[in-house]
Each structure stands twice: as C-alpha cells, then as structure tokens.
Nucleic acid binder design. Structure first.
Lengths: 122, 122
DNA sequence: CGGTATCCTGCTGGATACTG
DNA sequence: CAGTATCCAGCAGGATACCG
C-alpha cells in the first residue's frame, strides 16, 4: 500500500534535498553555464556580445556550451538566412528558472568581495 | 577625478555582477563543497555521518574537502584527545552564508525532478 | 572511527589556427 | 560575424588498499 503524504512528519526530507542539490550541481556544473545563462537573461543576444560580457571565456567554450544549451532547451538559436553569420540567442522560460540561484550567487560574490577587502585593511 | 557613486545611473552593474558570479562559482566549484556544507549545516557532525548523508562521495574526497574547508574558515574541526578518532565538525558563520544559494539550488532541483517526471508521463 | 597513500582515468577547458 | 578543428595539459575525482 502506498504511503499517503504525511503532512505532519518531516516537512523537510534531508535525503531528498541532497538529491535535489546534487541534481542541480550536475546540471549547472562547470565554469561557464551560469555566466552564459546570466548573460543571455540580461539581454545579450549576439555571439560576440555574450562573449564580451563574460571575462575569460573562449570562443570554443562559448560555442560548445551554447550548442549544448540549445539541445537542452535552455536557449533558442535564431539564424537569419538573409544575413549569413547573423545569429541571435534568446532565453527560454526554462533558462529563466535559474534566476534565483544566479541572484543568490551574485549576492554572495559581492559580499565576499567586501569581506576580502575588509580583511586586507585590517 | 574619481567618479562619485551615482545613485541614479546603473543601479545594476553587469560587469560587477558577472565578476561576483564567477567568484562564487570558483569558491564553491566542484561536485562536493555544497553538499558538504549543506550536510554540516543540517547538523551532521561526525565524519561517517557526513559521509553517509552524501550519496556517492568517497572518503578520500570528503577528507580532502574537509581539510580545505577548515583552512578556508568554513568549518571548525574539534578533535577529542581523550577518544582518539573521535572528531566533530561544525559550521562557522561563514559556512552558513551559503544558505541562500543552497536553498535556491534545492528548490530548483525539486522542481526539475517534478518537471522530468511530468515529461515521462506525456 | 577517521582518516591517508597510491595509482589512474577522463573530462574540462585552454591555445592556436582556420573557415564561410 | 559566428563559429569549427585540432591538439594538449591539468586536475578533479574514482578505485583500492592500508593505518593508528
């Protein structure tokens, strides 16, 4: 017999939460996915634009990640047939679902900088 | 002359935000740091406890990460001299500063699971 | 229990050059 | 502009065995 949802016991399920956490880490793992998502969500649409908006990224990496992200439904690639080599990328709803994570991370990063700066002055 | 902070223009600074994002990715990079932080913040204190709470992690990895995290001020290691091989770990305030990120990621992971399940039924 | 030592593999990602 | 091709290194991380 299937257990019915018990709303009283364990409002938090640690095992389930680690799982969820590990899934997420798997999906957004690596150095570039989140910065790229962030860039496109910020309105950058052209390859070069995105490239310039992310310090340190190479074309190869950007190219690879964009391809994978398109496959995974994170972005749409719009290729203008009239202008060869005019491509635009746009974020899907799915892509935007990472907003909370990205915001939390930006926030943490800013505070971290402030903290380090403090430390140097001490 | 130094630019004074202009509260009107650019309440958001994209360049600064990518930086912050990349800093954060650097700090919590890899498969294990976040799950370990999460585990310790959830009250797991013993090595084995932490190990058991994180599916897939090996002793070697856990050991290495814990050592690094202690060096970086994320956790305190309490070694009981009376009981050799009785060690406890506890989270520092710094460690807890990752809570928002972790929560956002757990949340995303859960929704992701639900989404995938939906897809399979369709 | 709480680790360390050793060995090994793969994959991420960098450098560089070329293309339609 | 928007990529692709090739080549290569480093290191994260897995397997396994051993230790006080």
């Amino acid at each position: 017999m299937a257990k019915t949802k018990n709303t009283l016991s364990s409002p938090r399920n640690p095992a389930e939460e680690v799982q969820a956490l590990q899934d997420t880490i798997y999906v957004i793992g690596g150095k570039w996915k989140l910065p790229i998502i962030n860039s496109i969500c910020n309105g950058n649409r052209r390859f070069r634009e995105i490239e310039r908006s992310i310090p340190g990224i190479t074309r190869r990496m950007l190219s690879r990640e964009l391809k994978e992200m398109e496959l995974n439904g994170l972005i749409r690639r719009l290729d203008d047939p009239d202008f060869p080599a005019k491509v635009e990328y746009e974020a899907t709803t799915y892509c935007k679902s990472f907003a909370d994570i990205i915001l939390a991370m930006i926030d943490w990063g800013k505070k971290h900088r402030a903290r380090v700066k403090q430390q140097l002055r001490a």
